[in-house]
């Protein structure tokens, strides 16, 4: 069990490091600077927590200090996650003026509603007599997960309804955040309902983050896929029949 715990704690951050190298190598950090910053921050937070953990083992630091660093780190990570989602939406609607005008208010109102919803549900969940710092941690985790997940769903449904083409990396970012946020949301709910032990739920969280990082790594290293028929080109007969169809459409 100790091995599994250490593996789930360390392995995702090793993979995140590879993800960082991948972004640097294919220069996609320029396209997604916020995502890059978020990964750098996660790595820095992990390093800081490892140092505090070892100080804790030598009784130099306290558990409360470790937890407060974790809580503050999660708060900053939540802001960076939101910034990454905004960046992903921005990349999608770049060069699409009309879409930008339509999507911005949808995302804005969705964010407002989600913040209210998350606040209300968090208030319900935070009455279980947990330690203050852990309470703040759970509320933060839950609220950021709800907001992330809601914005992801709105963004995906909106772009799917409008047939907006997605590049590979934004899909990976969204899928990764989707896995992580949904499991975080469920985990926070389970803790508040005291359905399972905290340790088991922590395993679930770490496993979800591991899966999320794996998805990011695959999509970071995967070459960008172009639409197949651009590569092969239209056949002349296809284009002629397309033109005929279109001419038929404009007939009056």
């Amino acid at each position: 069990m100790v091995f599994l715990q250490l593996y789930l704690w360390i392995a995702p951050h090793v993979l995140l490091g590879l993800c960082l190298l991948g972004l640097l190598r294919n220069r996609r950090y320029k396209e997604f600077p916020m995502f890059f910053t978020y990964i750098v921050f996660e790595e820095a937070l992990f390093s800081g927590l490892v140092v505090i953990y070892f100080l804790l083992l030598r009784s130099v630091a306290s558990l409360t200090a470790y937890r407060w660093v974790l809580v503050i780190g999660i708060a900053i990570a939540a802001i960076l996650q939101l910034a990454t989602l905004y960046e992903t939406a921005n990349v999608l609607i770049l060069n699409r003026l009309y879409l930008a005008r339509a999507l911005r208010p949808v995302l804005k109102w969705a964010a407002v509603l989600l913040i209210f919803g998350a606040s209300a549900v968090s208030a319900l969940f935070s009455q279980n007599g947990m330690q203050r710092v852990m309470n703040v941690f759970e509320v933060l985790n839950f609220s950021s997960s709800v907001i992330n997940l809601g914005l992801l769903v709105v963004l995906l449904l909106f772009t799917r309804a409008l047939h907006v083409a997605w590049k590979s990396l934004p899909v990976g970012i969204v899928l990764g955040f989707g896995i992580s946020s949904s499991v975080e949301m469920i985990a926070s709910t389970l803790i508040s309902g005291s359905r399972a032990s905290y340790i088991n739920i922590d395993y679930l969280r770490m496993a979800a983050f591991h899966a999320c990082v794996l998805v990011w790594l695959v999509y970071t290293l995967r070459p960008e896929r172009k639409l197949e028929f651009v590569e092969s080109g239209f056949k002349k007969s296809d284009l002629e029949s397309w033109n005929q169809d279109l001419q038929r459409m404009v007939e009056r």
Partner: peptide, 26 residues
């Protein structure tokens, strides 16, 4: 608690479905 858990699972399913659909559309 049950409601939030169902919402979480549905949201993830929705994300996976949207992404799978995106791949097969083109």
């Amino acid at each position: 608690v049950l409601f939030v858990m169902i919402v979480g699972v549905l949201a993830l399913a929705c994300i996976v479905w949207s992404i799978r659909g995106r791949n097969s559309d083109t």
